[in-house]
């Protein structure tokens, strides 16, 4: 995929600008915005309106200049939708809307995985997480069916420290990505342990065939371990959730 020809051309006009500097500024603004949102200085509706306006403007810009190809547009749209769902999950106080934001983020993440030709994992993610999320919806409906939101939904534990920790963590990750980009390409030329054969490359739709073959030949022991883990989790969850029987003395 050819990424960011538009942004690249703009950068060429401006001069060489490190993209991680812009990423740090974005992280700082996001942290400040999140914290002020939690302190009640901002309303979440205004943030949503600003975000929608910005995203729509970016989309219009990309469509007018006509330099981005369709798959890049879809990829970026999925990324933006996932991050928007995540931000909604963080900022919304009602638990059921938070669960909706979580579902949006996870399903958009599955779309991103689908574009990376990991079709089986995308489908499995949708099945597992969608099933889990639907059950979560049932739980939320069952446990928190009140008119007013509870205090533990309204009052968070130390949002200031959490914001600082999150911003620092993301900053360190972005910085390490930048240093990895700056490293010489020879250091990143990792020789794959078993390169793919010609008939099953990752980019073909039949990559699921290769994945299955790899799973059940090279990683068969891992599959067995995973099956054992699932069995143990099933037994454990039944044992934990069992209603204790009152024994009369």
């Amino acid at each position: 995929m050819n990424f960011f020809p538009l942004a690249q051309s703009m950068l060429d006009k401006v001069g060489k600008v490190d993209w991680h500097l812009m990423a740090f500024i974005c992280i700082a603004f996001g942290a400040i915005g999140y914290f002020s949102l939690q302190r009640g200085m901002l309303k979440s509706k205004s943030i949503a309106i600003v975000g929608v306006v910005l995203l729509t403007g970016a989309g219009f810009l990309a469509a007018i200049t006509n330099e981005l190809s369709l798959d890049v547009c879809v990829f970026l749209a999925f990324c933006g939708l996932a991050i928007g769902g995540g931000i909604a999950f963080l900022s919304v106080r009602q638990p059921i809307y938070a669960a909706l934001g979580f579902a949006t983020a996870i399903l958009s993440g599955a779309g991103v995985l689908f574009l990376q030709s990991a079709t089986f994992i995308a489908a499995a993610t949708i099945i597992v997480y969608a099933g889990a999320t639907i059950i979560m919806f049932l739980f939320v409906l069952m446990f928190s069916q009140q008119d007013a939101p509870e205090t533990y939904d309204l009052k968070l534990t130390r949002p200031f420290f959490a914001t600082i920790i999150g911003a620092l963590f993301l900053g360190v990750l972005v910085y390490s990505l930048q240093t990895a980009e700056d490293a010489s390409p020879d250091e990143w030329k990792v020789v794959s342990a078993r390169p793919l054969s010609a008939e099953t490359t990752l980019d073909t739709p039949s990559s699921t065939v290769g994945l299955g073959r790899s799973l059940f030949t090279e990683y068969l022991f891992t599959v067995e371990i995973a099956g054992t883990l699932l069995l143990a989790a099933t037994i454990g969850s039944i044992a934990v959730a069992q209603r204790t029987i009152e024994v009369s003395a």
Partner: peptide
Amino acid sequence: LFGAVMFTIGMVGFLTRRSIIL
């Protein structure tokens, strides 16, 4: 970058939220 943002969102949510399900 996208994975890092998702991970950070989950981490901040885990640190701040008080409801067990969330």
